[in-house]
């Protein structure tokens, strides 16, 4: 795109850049794969949450990665135990199809709810959630795959098992119009690879959508995060680098600050 960002509303850029560890949870354990496949065990969700919060994580995201496929809502007990362990915002996603699913997660300790497949199936869900709980509570997760033949990105649903004939940027704009407060933008191509965030995607997306965008997929080093922020991300999500203890969040934030990124220390 390369378009000037001058027309964009300020504000969100005045806030601290957020570092958000992501816990993909399956059967009560944190797992991590590559491009959503080949999941390996990465630890206990409560132990990891406690460590990340202590290290200075700004928020946590917990996604029940098998919930939609198996047709159930995210593990309530795990949410409660994470809530009890942390004093930062907790976003929960996985299998949320209606207001009651969302309310159930909120009542068990989530602060924000992330929807993905169900919002693509029925976009009114975003309206219902933002009207009932507010935009600040309504996160839409986009799993995005780069198109092979032409330029652009398409939406994937059902944990990356289904391709939708839906343009990622157009869908992001629609989500914003329907009342989403935040977008969790995951590059399916980069997920778990450590090849760096898809900067082109982040740039194109944040030039077209003004609500806060959390970039996800591909982080391996501090320089990847610096690049994501300079491409327009308001927050970055990472999993493997934290699970594998390649770097602590504390050290990462210290390095980001040195690079001139305004983080909460």
């Amino acid at each position: 795109m390369g378009a000037s960002l001058d027309w964009k509303m300020a504000g969100v850029d005045m806030l601290k850049k957020r570092i958000i560890p992501c816990l993909d949870v399956r059967d009560g354990r944190v797992v991590k794969g590559v491009q959503f496949m080949g999941l390996r065990d990465a630890g206990d969700p409560v132990e990891l949450s406690t460590r990340y919060a202590d290290e200075g994580a700004d928020e946590l995201v917990m996604l029940d990665v098998s919930a939609t496929i198996e047709g159930r809502v995210a593990l309530l007990e795990t949410i409660e135990r994470i809530r009890n362990a942390i004093a930062i915002p907790l976003t929960v996603g996985g299998g949320v199809r209606n207001i009651e699913d969302a309310r159930n997660l909120l009542n068990h300790g989530a602060d924000k709810i992330s929807v993905n497949s169900a919002a693509v199936d029925r976009p009114e869900l975003i309206v219902e959630m933002s009207q009932t709980f507010g935009s600040q509570c309504t996160v839409v997760a986009l799993d995005v795959k780069r198109l092979e033949q032409t330029s652009g990105w398409q939406i994937m649903t059902r944990s990356g098992t289904r391709s939708e004939s839906l343009d990622a940027i157009a869908w992001g704009q629609q989500c914003q119009g329907l009342g989403a407060g935040e977008i969790l933008l995951t590059s399916f191509d980069r997920d778990g690879t450590g090849n760096g965030y898809d900067c082109e995607l982040i740039q194109a997306f944040t030039a077209a959508v003004s609500i806060p965008t959390i970039a996800s997929g591909g982080a391996r080093s501090t320089k990847d995060l610096v690049a994501a922020f300079s491409c327009g991300a308001h927050a970055v999500l990472a999993a493997s680098i934290f699970h594998d203890q390649e770097i602590s969040i504390q050290e990462l934030k210290r390095q980001l600050a040195v690079e001139g990124i305004d983080v909460r220390l």
Binding site: V12, M14, L15
Partner: peptide, 14 residues
Amino acid sequence: RFDTSVQVPQLGWN
């Protein structure tokens, strides 16, 4: 309401 020059809601750390 916040000034129209800024994105609402203000969502994050300040």
